[in-house]
Structure formats: structure tokens, C-alpha cells
Computed example of a mutant assay.
Amino acid sequence: MADALVSIQILPRTPNGESVIPYVDRAIEIIQASGVRYVVGPLETTMEGDFSELLEIVKAMNDEMIRLGAPSVLSQVKISYNPTDGASIDRLIAKYRT
């Protein structure tokens, strides 16, 4: 059972002011490769899984931005942690689905 939801908006500062989209695409590839459940939204991506694992993914994403040449990275992260009852994307948005 997943115990956390972590949403992240990653904003690397690009070396020459180019678009951040290729960087963001690479960050999402890191999430995809991790195997955790995730939902890409227009302004952030939400992951569902083990709290510690999700934080490691956030770190890997930031590390990759630097490796790709970004001199710095701003990551806005939201965390919902519920080790007792678990955390679920579906449970949170079920009433909004038609």
C-alpha cells in the first residue's frame, strides 16, 4: 500500500535561457523509469508510493537537471504522507471523475 503522494514542479535554470521543456521531459522520464504510479498535470506531476522512495526520485530528478547543465534547480514539492491509512491519487480525485 502506498503511504504517500508527492507532487513536484521542477524548474531548472537553463544555462543559456533555453526552454525548460526538454529538462522537464527528462525529469518525467526518471519518474517513468522508477515504476511508481504517477499522473502528469499541466503544472506538476504527482507520484504515489513509498514515502522514502518518492523522495529518492525527487533527488534523482534534481541531480539529473544539474548533470544536464542546469546551474541550479527550483523544485516545488507537495507531500501527503499517511502511513496509517495509505495515500491514493484515485481516492483523492474520485468524486471529480465522471
Rank of each mutant, 00 (worst) to 15 (best):
Lys78Ala: 02
Pro42Asp: 04
Gly49His: 06
Asp90Met: 15
Asn62Glu: 13
Arg67Thr: 11
Gly41Cys: 05
Thr46Ala: 06
Ile21Phe: 08
Glu29Trp: 03
Pro71Asn: 10
Ile79Val: 14
Glu56Phe: 09
Thr45Cys: 00
Arg13Met: 14
Val73Asp: 09
Asn82Gly: 12
Gln76Asp: 05
Ser80Tyr: 07
Ile10Tyr: 08
Lys59Ser: 14
Ser72Asp: 13
Pro42Ala: 05
Ile57Ala: 13
Met65Phe: 00
Ile93Arg: 07
Asn16Ala: 15
Glu53Pro: 06
Glu64His: 03
Glu18Lys: 00
Glu44Pro: 11
Phe51Glu: 01
Ile89His: 02
Ser75Arg: 06
Val77Arg: 03
Gln9His: 08
Glu64Pro: 01
Met61Ala: 04
Thr45Leu: 00
Val39Ile: 03
Val36Ile: 13
Val36Gln: 08
Tyr23His: 00
Pro83Lys: 04
Val58Lys: 09
Lys78Leu: 06
Gly35Trp: 02
Ile28Asp: 00
Thr14Gly: 12
Ile8Met: 05
Asp25Glu: 11
Ser19Val: 13
Ser34Pro: 11
Ile79Leu: 15
Ala87Phe: 03
Pro83Trp: 13
Leu68Arg: 07
Ser88Met: 02
Gln32Arg: 13
Leu54Trp: 15
Asp25Arg: 03
Val20Pro: 03
Gly49Ala: 05
Val77Lys: 05
Ile30Asn: 02
Arg26Thr: 09
Asp90Gln: 13
Ser19Gly: 09
Val77Ile: 15
Asp63Val: 10
Arg26Gln: 09
Ile30Pro: 12
Asp85Glu: 04
Val40Asn: 11
Asn16Gln: 10
Ile8Asp: 00
Pro15Phe: 12
Glu48Pro: 07
Tyr23Lys: 01
Asp50Tyr: 10
Met47Ser: 04
Tyr23Thr: 02
Pro42Cys: 07
Asp63Gln: 08
Glu48Ser: 00
Ala27His: 01
Asp85Asn: 14
Ser75Ile: 06
Leu55Phe: 13
Leu74His: 03
Tyr23Arg: 01
Ser34Cys: 12
Tyr38Asp: 03
Tyr81Trp: 15
Ile30Ser: 12
Val36Phe: 08
Ala60Ser: 14
Gly17Ser: 07
Ala60Thr: 05
Ser34Gly: 11
Met65Asp: 02
Asp25Gln: 08
